[in-house]
Design a protein around this nucleic acid. Structure first.
Lengths: 216, 216
DNA sequence: TGTATGTGGAGGATTACATTCCGGTTACAC
DNA sequence: GTGTAACCGGAATGTAATCCTCCACATACA
């Protein structure tokens, strides 16, 4: 899909395009989707001119990065769902990898600007919906298995992924990574269907996270 | 302490000063410590001139807000530690309220800019140290009580507070608040000293969180 | 009621970005 | 080889946002 613009490109142009998306994803992840275009171009090893030729404005770039990222995450999530022997294990994998998966880019992309862009793009909406469906399936599965506590829903899990994303900072890269994994570990233990304390409120659906708020 | 500048002020000036700090705290919390000075002034109901007269530059304002906030949080944390019957309950209270406590302002104030400011200010370092000590005491206490899992340390808890801070966004204020509380609930269950899965890495100390990294 | 203290906000200076444009390269069809 | 359409980098320009100063006017309070 959308093969046209990507296959018509000359080899080097195609390569640059990919590098730009990769660089943008990395930079968006730490500086948000309003990061200077020039910084992205530099990180991609191209000139701003090239960046603008390929993506006429910031919006186009955000769209492209988001779509690319969703696609990638969806693929990984599907693989996990298919390969892991139980739904619970698939969920475990998802949470543990949500950090590196840069799931951030799409979920944390909730700058007012990016938000409207993502909500507008039909393809991205589609991806998001599929991802949420997958998640809902896993949640139901893990609850059937009797491993996941019954008072949570897909929205809760998505929310926790989102929370985890927000870059945990620490002394060093390594410590930060470890910190995030420990946090996941605690959460997973908290998600197990053992005694536990009943959670406040009601289980969150995926619609609950359809953020509507603006920031300013 | 630091009574001089605060008591010498004329009554109305004093009032304005307090309003500015309150407004800045609120705005920093959502827009970060680089929020426009004018916005802060407006929120405080004063002119920019007044803001600048009281706080010669942004750095001074950040310092003041951070100090004020630490003081306030420290007071609340101490009260919780003193009043709650067990260390575990005090921890529970802390986690549940970390969101509203705007503990955010200080912990999440990790914009490169703010970071160096906070690290420089001796009074703020002092506050931070005291808060961490208090936390360490509670952690040890709750572990002695046999309720808190033994493979975590104060740094782990502080990290989770920090993670929680990062504004959970959702459909509405209410849902967001609920989402945060549910997340805390799951974490608390995960922190209990029941079977559970061993956590990866080693327990985090408070020094592990002394962030050194710059963002850009 | 005099005056030291305090106030608001217009406006000049500065910065940080987005975006355009064009002389020079490069892939690749033939 | 070689011609040319496609592509490239980055200097240059335009623009918007924000900082911070300054001063005519207001207010608390001795």
């Amino acid at each position: 899909m959308t093969a046209d613009p990507e296959t018509t490109l000359r080899a080097d142009a195609r390569r640059n395009r990919d590098q730009i998306i990769a660089a943008a994803r990395a930079i968006f992840a730490v500086s948000g989707p309003e990061a200077p275009m020039e910084e992205i171009a530099r990180a991609a090893g191209v000139g701003v001119g090239t960046l603008y030729r390929r993506f006429p404005d910031r919006e186009a770039l955000i769209r492209a990065v988001a779509a690319d990222n969703f696609e990638r995450v969806l693929r990984d999530a599907r693989a996990a769902a298919a390969e892991k022997p139980t739904a619970w294990l698939a969920l475990e994998w998802l949470l543990h990898h949500s950090v590196e998966l840069q799931l951030s880019v799409q979920l944390a992309m909730l700058s007012p600007r990016a938000l409207t862009i993502l909500k507008t793009d039909p393809q991205i909406r589609q991806y998001r919906a599929e991802l949420m469906d997958l998640l809902a399936g896993l949640v139901a599965g893990a609850q059937d298995e009797g491993v996941l506590r019954p008072d949570v829903a897909a929205g809760d899990i998505a929310m926790m992924c989102a929370v985890l994303m927000r870059q945990v900072r620490a002394k060093s890269e390594d410590v930060a990574r470890m910190a995030a994994q420990r946090c996941v570990g605690v959460m997973l233990d908290g998600l197990r269907a053992i005694p536990g304390t009943p959670l406040p409120g009601r289980a969150l659906t995926t619609e609950d996270l359809e953020m509507v708020r603006q920031q300013q």
